[in-house]
Write a protein that binds this DNA or RNA. Structure first.
Lengths: 250, 250
DNA sequence: AGTGATAAAATGGTCCGACCATTATATGGA
DNA sequence: TCCATATAATGGTCGGACCATTTTATCACT
């Protein structure tokens, strides 16, 4: 007969649970640095051994990593189980990049639709901020900054979906494709017309999310991503997707 | 370039490795009580915090259990030596589970749509086979076999999308939820009417893919998965709907 | 101004000693 | 023998201290 565990009353468990929730909710993202042990002691009002036990437990579970003198950092829990095998796959089979792109696009449509449903005021503000940053970078013809801003814009949308799995997987795929993306981005942005259309599509996505219409957001994302896909496939043929087709989707 | 792990050389690691070896070799059998922390301090010539760290690490891995005043004992079941941090994050966290489910559903819609476009004759035959196996298991009221068959059916669809990344991520999410899904499945299938409706939905998905209509396939998948989501939420805690209810009630 | 070495601060790792809460064991009386 | 109590053993928590490493700030030098 298996009875209840009864005892969650260890201080370190309470601490580690709290930290785990911060990681799950996305407040602490992979790569982020945790407060130092002594700061946590002050903030939580517990002793350092208790804090250490909590961090030890998280480290044993592979959720954080600690370096003496450095600090404690949030580990990426998705990478080992999902992305690493994908990275291996990509190494052996570069053609699979289009598969990953396809996958990412599906996730982004999903994220856009959920973001429209669940984005808080703060989320919308953040998305708007990223959108404007992207527009500025584009206007300044700063390709590298624009690529970063584009990733930040799409990640902000993913975070606004308030779905931790979606956020983590999207981020992982972004990281996975980051190198490839820059060159693609450069090739895309060489055409001012394409650049402008992409900006408009971003604006449609942004407006759809702000207006809270999940279907519109999903369609806007789909339009944008299928346009990107078509443009990448038809490189050297800037007129491959004209504005009317992009607006109507395919 | 991946360098060597250098040297952890943490005292607690050396201790925990030594204890782990004792357990692995059978010197310490499940249920055995290991020496008290203070005894280990004397025997190993290290400080008590180091011993505690080592024991904490073993406890986090589930290899030993400690009771205040009682002592530390080798766990009865030491099978799960490897721990998936993600699975740990999901345990006792319904929100996280529904996040992963949501994510999986989005991917499955995508897979259904692509499967409709790209499925070969062999793919369609395989999907049909899995579909019938699932129907048989359901008719036989064999819940465990039905759960396996359901996974096989959806995985066959993912494979038919001919997208490596989609297949891989879908499989990862399936594995992640495998433990949780069985109980969910049991709760769903207790209702014959629900069981029948799910069968019909599977059939719609199957037919849409065979007919080669991506939009129909996507819609069929969406209908199916939102129905599953609604049913699970309705079976569980009615008060847990909050933000998710709007997302699924479309 | 840029650069590189050096000093200072921050941070995790280790250790000590103490006390508390819980459990197991020994003790003693019925 | 049996049960309640007292005692001992054990893990849990705490505070402080010091060390090793890393990061950051400082400053002299070119």
């Amino acid at each position: 007969m298996q009875l209840k565990p009864i005892k969650p009353s260890k201080i370190s468990d309470a601490i580690s649970e709290q930290l785990k929730e911060l990681i799950r909710s996305g407040t602490l993202k992979p790569g982020d640095r945790l407060p130092s042990e002594r700061e946590l002691v002050d903030q939580l009002g517990v002793s350092r051994p208790s804090v250490r036990e909590a961090l030890l437990k998280l480290e044993a579970r592979g959720m954080v990593t600690s370096r003496q003198g450095g600090g404690t950092y949030v580990a990426d829990v998705l990478a080992p189980s999902i992305v690493n095998p994908l990275a291996d796959l990509l190494r052996d089979n570069p053609d699979a990049i289009s598969d990953v792109l396809e996958c990412r696009h599906g996730l982004e449509e999903l994220a856009a639709s959920y973001a429209a449903l669940r984005a808080t005021a703060d989320d919308r503000e953040l998305i708007q901020e990223k959108f404007h940053a992207l527009a500025d970078a584009n206007a300044a013809r700063d390709l590298e900054r624009a690529a970063t801003a584009d990733a930040a814009f799409h990640m902000a949308i993913a975070e606004a979906s308030h779905n931790f799995a979606l956020v983590h997987i999207t981020r992982s795929l972004f990281d996975l494709l980051s190198t490839q993306m820059l060159s693609n981005w450069e090739r895309l942005m060489m055409n001012p017309k394409t650049c402008e259309e992409i900006h408009d599509q971003h604006q449609y996505i942004f407006e759809a999310i702000v207006s809270g219409d999940p279907d519109m957001a999903r369609n806007a994302a789909h339009t944008h991503l299928s346009y990107i896909g078509r443009s990448l496939r038809g490189l050297g043929e800037p007129d491959a997707g004209d504005r009317r087709r992009a607006a109507l989707g395919d």
